[in-house]
C-alpha cells in the first residue's frame, strides 16, 4: 500500500504546530497503525529528519497511551479498538490519512502527537479511590455478597483505560464518560459507599477546574470508546452528584 500521511507536527508545548505531508510506500495491510508509523520514523531517521513523536506502551489495547485522532475519529475508523489495535487493512491503497493529537484545552500538546493527560490523574486523585486498612487485617473482598448485575456493571465501568478518546471525540471536550466510569465502578459496590458523597463531588469539581467542557449528550464518547463504556455511567454519575449535593 502507498499512502499519504498528513501528520500534526509541533516541536514543543509552546510552539505553533502545523500539518506536514509524508508519503509512505510498501505498507503491509497486516501492519498495525503504530508499526506503520515506526516504518515512517525509521525512514525519517535515515534521512536525518526528526521522527514523529507519539505515545505508546503496551501495544495491546490496555495502556491507553496511543492518543491519536486518525482520519477524523479517535483511534481511527474501527470501533472498540485503540490505535495499536488498528490495522492498515482498514485503509485502502492511495488513501490520505490525517493523524492529529487529541484536541482539548485540558489536554495540551507536548510534542507532535503526544498530549498531556495528567488532568485525568488529578481527577482520580480527587476521589477515584477507596480508603481501606491494608495493615494486614484486610477483609477478603469476596466475603461481601454483591448482586451479579451490579458486579458486572462495576466491572464494565472499571474497564475504562483512561485513554481520553471520549474527550477527543466530544464536540465539547467533555470528560464526563471517563469521570462517570470512575465514579460508577465504586458507586455500584458496597466498598465504595463510605466515600461516595465526597468522591463524586470532588471528582466533578476537579473535572470542572481542569477546563473540560459540559456534556450535551451527543453520545460520541460512547461510540468512540475503545472499551465500550456506556452512557448509563454518565446518568448514574448525574444521579450520584445530585444525591450528594442534596446531602452535602
Amino acid at each position: 500500500m502507498n499512502l499519504t500521511l498528513k501528520i500534526w507536527r509541533q516541536k514543543g508545548a509552546n510552539d505553533k504546530g502545523k500539518i506536514v505531508d509524508y508519503a509512505v510506500s510498501e505498507v503491509s495491510p497486516d501492519m498495525s497503525f503504530l508499526e506503520m508509523l515506526d516504518v515512517l520514523n525509521q525512514d525519517l531517521i535515515e534521512k536525518g529528519e526528526e521522527p514523529v513523536a507519539f505515545d505508546h506502551d503496551c501495544r495491546e489495547g490496555i495502556c491507553g497511551m496511543c492518543s491519536m485522532f486518525v482520519n477524523g475519529q479517535a483511534h481511527g475508523p474501527d470501533s472498540m479498538v485503540t490505535v495499536c489495535q488498528l490495522h492498515m487493512r482498514s485503509f485502502n491503497d492511495g488513501d490520505t490519512i490525517y493523524i492529529e493529537p487529541w484536541r482539548a484545552t485540558a489536554f495540551p500538546v507536548i510534542k507532535d502527537l503526544i498530549v498531556d493527560r495528567t488532568a485525568f490523574d488529578r481527577i482520580q486523585h480527587a476521589g477515584g479511590f477507596i480508603s481501606v486498612n491494608t495493615s494486614g487485617n484486610t477483609q477478603d473482598a469476596n466475603a461481601i455478597p454483591i448482586e451479579k448485575a451490579n458486579a458486572d456493571a462495576a466491572f464494565d465501568a472499571a474497564t475504562c483505560i483512561g485513554c481520553g478518546a471520549c474527550v477527543a471525540s466530544c464536540k465539547n471536550s467533555s470528560a464526563m464518560l471517563f469521570v462517570s466510569a470512575k465514579v460508577s465502578q465504586f458507586a455500584l459496590l458496597p466498598q465504595g459507599q463510605v466515600e461516595a458523597t465526597d468522591r463524586v463531588l470532588n471528582m466533578v469539581k476537579q473535572m470542572d477546574e481542569e477546563g473540560f467542557g459540559n456534556c450535551t449528550n451527543t453520545g460520541a464518547c460512547e461510540v468512540e470508546c475503545p472499551k465500550g463504556i456506556s452512557l448509563e455511567n454518565i446518568a448514574r454519575m448525574n444521579r450520584e452528584y445530585l444525591k450528594a449535593s442534596l446531602k452535602g
Binding site: 498528513k6 482520519n71 475519529q73 484536541r103 471525540s169 465539547n172 467542557g213 450535551t216 453520545g219
Partner: peptide, 30 residues
C-alpha cells in the same frame, strides 16, 4: 453560556473531524 464555555474547551480544532461517524447532526447543532 454553555456553548461559549464548551467552545473554550477546545481552542484548536481538528483539521479533519468526522462527527457524523459517532453522533447525530441534531445533537451537534443544538
Amino acid at each position: 453560556v454553555l456553548e461559549i464555555k464548551n467552545n473554550k474547551s477546545r481552542a484548536v480544532s481538528y483539521a479533519k473531524n468526522k462527527g457524523s461517524a459517532n453522533s447525530t447532526w441534531m445533537s451537534r447543532n443544538m
